[in-house]
Design a protein around this nucleic acid. Structure first.
Length: 895
RNA sequence: GCCCGGGUGGCGAAAUGGCAGACGCAAGGGUCUUAAAAACCCUGGCCGUAAGGCAUGCGGGUUCGAGUCCCGCCCCGGGCACCA
């Protein structure tokens, strides 16, 4: 085999390793906190480093942002592109328990493996800024920020019944309960009372909604956040319980239907139930409450279920009619929303209607579409339409006669009624949110300890700032105690301390913070990761923040993003930063699916344990490794499912880099589909990218001998006086059009068409090469070739950086092209010499004209009309109209 | 049920209201080779010999012109759900 043949093959393993080593040695990706250049902050959601390492699925997230960041550097930006580890939290702790290891040792090991893999794919992170949320240098400041919230009255402790996961043996936030099950392990959630720390995120509910209008996120994600916060405008109305001092406060969005409120419903857990229930109803009420307590959230969430409830025997006055109305308890009213009590208006609310019909409660129409309309004939509630009836109050009413007779059923009327009710002290307008306060306490070892000391005399006292961090102690046993107490509670040296206030003996808080605390500010730490005196310096944050581009999976659409926005607003209010939205632009990459072998499973026997629930979907189950040996292959049923370790269908970047190279992997991920789309992984796809890279390499190396280093000045001076051949003009045109297209597409995150544009250019270049005679090229040819030899590595630099560096160095360039400027786009060279005008008759294409771009419109229309096919169509018909779109088409309307 | 996406060749996908299917995969044919692989070149929506006609989930509409806009459905994916 001759040396030529070796030279002709792209030795990607060697070359990629060479450049990765050089980037490392030269610290190429390091970035400073100051520059004359404008800043750009590109951030990936920081991952939890699991033992499985990253999959090519993670790469769908990291590679596109890497392309964008590398491109921004070439465009002259000072780019911050950091990476770190979301290391605290239950996944790491569970993994450590499973492996019988200490998470303090295990996590850095896993993180190092992630780092190795990310380097293998050629991601341009500034590793000098690597952070680990479980490192005391980091969580010290998480604790500091906890205290900032505490001091601003935004952290409080409440002894509340919490969601309790019997498997993870820990409390769960409402947000972590999905369909009544633990969001991580899928176990049915129980209730258990526990002193818990909460953050008052509800105080920021409105700002978390309005802030959405100032940032560039997809409408879908914004909508999800709005719904999660769930603002609804309405009123609170007080109902006096007859024969008692108590009154019941209800929340309603329809105070205008108060005249039709014929009963009241309390949630079974409502504290007033005890006080107002009549003696002869106590047994029934007690029984109903017990049943409600036992029924799972799943059952209570079933909308189809018939409404049930029982009478308390107590009555309240309807404040506007003066009529006594019965008070029920029913589980369709939730203690956690509004006031835990509703006024029921069966005529205009479907749930109330069903309940009223079942228990024979009167239905009173507030709005009628026709005077003769009667409540008796109704089969369902009428939420909209009609005009309001007139109502005369009984003597017991707290208001005069309704002045709203004839008012339409709309928002305007609601507003007027609220003002009227307010005037008579019956109710007041309020805004209610679905959002609840954020439960931060975890009775777990692997988290940042909550920096509070409980003193019998002084109550909860913050740990003084100079005593931070409250170190997570080394322990023998870090498994959950199972009693609900944190493992830290079993370590006397940790628990026993003195009160910073009075010096008396005191106890440390033993709960740790949930992982969402760590991830609510890490983007700030990256701006100043080694600061020992502050969480971050105001200057660093001011320089880098907000994040210009945040990239990650849509599964974080609600919780993480909401919490991070909340903390940022608190930090802003404390005067530490001058912005209050952390992430300007957000992009969510699509899922990556792997073709996965499974087998049919009978639907009826629900194989209930959680491990199986994971991979059981629609009568189909993923084959376990041992089953692949016993079940013949022709019985396997293949489906596309999400690539993940637990499903055993992971493809790793390591094997792909080994087989095809990192650049091939990068190119495939970018090319296969739009960034946001779900992708089905195939090896065929990466093979195609690999082929393309080899093809490009061959083309480039074949043309390389014609390279003239000083081409740029000579093109500038010579090409204006020489008339280039049409072929060379066309080749330069395509090059400059590609330069423009690639830049636009990277900017818009349209990587698939970006790669396609490069392929188109390569195809054209290939034709040119084939036509090139074996003799020495002319000077014009050599200069044109030189231009593209240099432009190609620059265009490829963000996408396939290893290949690009190698080509660049072969041009005799000494420096990495990481900081080279993006190639200049020559508008003149890119201008089309001829444009195609489509000729249509009645909107159907009949012919095409190729004309110079400056051809007069009248001339174009004359040529179009002269087309043979147009003339044929005009026989025996009349030309009625001519539509002309300059530069595009001429359409003749005939009839 | 509600909210957010989406439905285009055998497949992944392109297309500011203006040539539907760029680019790629798979396929077929060819060149080179003793042969194969690799590489390179060519063909390719459907019907029709052709002229031409029909094609972007289905049905309407707006428009000179609709994959794109509007109305009504069907299907797929994701999220939320007795929210008063």
């Amino acid at each position: 085999m001759s040396d030529d043949r070796i030279e002709n093959r792209y030795e990607f393993r060697q070359i990629e390793a060479k450049w990765q080593k050089r980037w490392e040695e030269e610290d190429t990706f390091r970035v400073e906190n100051s520059s004359d250049r404008p800043k750009f902050y590109g951030l990936d959601f920081f991952p939890y480093p699991s033992g499985a390492g990253i999959s090519v699925g993670h790469c769908r997230n990291y590679i596109p942002l890497d392309v964008a960041c590398r491109f921004k550097v070439m465009q002259g930006y000072n780019v911050l592109h950091p990476m770190g580890w979301d290391a605290f939290g239950q996944p790491a702790e569970n993994e450590a328990i499973k492996r019988g290891r200490n998470p303090q040792e295990m996590v850095p090991e896993y993180a190092a493996n992630y780092k190795r893999q990310l380097k293998l794919v050629g991601i341009s992170y500034d590793w000098s800024r690597e952070i680990d949320s479980s490192n005391p240098d980091y969580y010290r400041w998480t604790q500091w920020l906890f205290l900032l919230l505490y001091k601003r009255g935004l952290a409080y402790q409440a002894n509340t019944p919490i969601n309790w996961c019997p498997v993870d043996k820990t409390g769960l936030a409402n947000e972590e309960v999905v369909n009544g099950r633990c969001w991580r392990c899928g176990t049915l959630v129980e209730k258990r009372p526990m002193p818990q720390w909460y953050f008052k995120i509800t105080e920021y509910a409105d700002r978390l909604i309005t802030g959405l209008d100032t940032i560039q996120w997809s409408d879908g994600i914004k909508q999800q956040q709005r719904e999660w916060i769930g603002r609804s405008d309405g009123a609170e109305v007080d109902f006096q319980v007859i024969g008692s001092d108590e009154s019941i406060r209800v929340f309603t969005t329809r105070p205008d239907t108060l005249w039709g409120a014929t009963f009241i419903v309390l949630a079974p857990e409502h504290p007033l139930v005890e006080k107002i229930t009549e003696q002869n109803h106590k047994d029934a009420v007690k029984e109903y409450q017990d049943r409600a307590k036992k029924s799972t959230d799943i059952e209570r969430q079933n909308t189809e279920r018939a409404k049930t409830g029982v009478l308390t025997g107590a009555y309240a006055d309807n404040p506007v009619t003066g009529e006594p109305i019965p008070i029920y308890i029913a589980d369709y009213v939730l203690m956690g929303y509004g006031t835990g009590a509703i006024m029921a208006v069966p005529a205009h609310d479907q749930r109330d209607f069903e309940f009223a019909r079942k228990y024979d409660i009167p239905v009173v129409l507030v709005y009628r579409s026709a005077p003769e309309q009667s409540a008796d004939s109704m089969t369902e509630a009428i939420p909209a339409g009609g005009v309001m009836d007139s109502f005369l109050p009984s003597p017991g009413a707290r208001t005069p006669a309704s002045p709203f007779a004839g008012s339409p059923n709309n928002k305007d009327t609601v507003g007027k009624v609220v003002a009227w009710l307010q005037q008579y002290g019956v109710g007041k307008g309020v805004i209610n949110y679905r959002l609840r306060d954020w439960l931060i306490s975890r009775q777990r070892y692997w988290g940042a300890p909550i920096p509070i000391i409980h003193c019998a005399k002084c109550g909860p006292v913050p740990v003084p700032e100079n005593q931070l961090p409250v170190l997570l102690p080394d322990v023998e046993r870090y498994e959950p105690t199972g009693t609900g107490e944190s493992p830290l509670a079993g370590i006397p040296e940790f628990v026993h301390t003195t009160c910073p206030n009075c010096g008396e003996p005191a106890r440390r808080e033993t709960d740790t913070m949930g992982g969402f605390a760590c991830s609510s500010w890490y983007f700030l730490r990256f701006t100043d990761p080694h600061n020992q005196d502050m969480a971050f310096s105001p200057e660093a944050a001011k320089y880098w923040m907000p994040v210009d581009l945040y990239v990650g999976g849509a599964e974080h659409a609600v919780m993480h993003l909401l919490y991070a926005r909340f903390w940022t607003k608190v930090i802003h209010d404390a005067g530490l930063v001058d912005f209050d939205e952390p992430f300007q632009k957000l992009r969510n990459q699509g899922m990556l699916l792997a073709h996965t072998a499974g087998r049919e499973v009978k639907a009826e026997n629900e194989e209930g344990n959680e491990e199986e629930a994971e991979d059981l979907l629609e009568n189909w189950k993923i084959l376990k490794p041992e089953e692949k040996l016993t079940i013949p292959e022709d019985q396997w049923i293949w489906r596309w499912v999400k690539m993940s370790k637990s499903k055993g269908n992971v493809v790793t970047p390591d094997e792909m880099a080994e087989k095809y190279g990192a650049d091939s992997l990068r190119l495939y991920g970018l090319f296969v589909a739009p960034f946001e789309d779900t992708v089905q992984w195939t090896d065929k796809g990466i093979e195609a990218s690999h082929r393309y890279i080899n093809r490009l390499w061959r083309l480039w190396t074949e043309l390389h001998p014609h390279y003239i280093p000083e081409w740029k000045s000579r093109i500038a001076s010579e090409f204006s006086s020489v008339s280039l051949s049409a072929e060379l003009r066309s080749l330069r045109r395509k090059l400059h059009q590609t330069i423009r297209k690639v830049a636009e597409d990277i900017e818009d995150f349209r990587f698939n068409t970006c790669v396609a544009a490069l392929m188109e250019y390569t195809n054209e270049l290939s034709l040119f090469r084939n036509n090139l005679s074996s003799e020495a090229p002319t000077m014009e040819q050599a200069l044109t070739i030189s231009e593209l030899l240099e432009s190609l590595p620059l265009l490829l630099a963000p996408l396939t950086p290893h290949l690009a560096e190698e080509l660049w160095s072969r041009l005799g360039k000494r420096n990495s092209l990481y900081r080279e400027s993006w190639p200049e786009f020559d508008a003149e060279a890119a201008a089309d010499e001829a444009i195609t005008i489509v000729v249509q008759v009645n909107g159907k294409v009949r012919d095409r004209l190729s004309v110079a771009p400056d051809t007069a419109q009248s001339e174009i229309e004359r040529l179009a009309l002269a087309c043979e096919k147009v003339q044929t169509d005009l026989i025996n018909k009349q030309l009625r109209k001519t539509i002309a779109v300059p530069g595009k088409l001429v359409n003749f309307v005939v009839g």
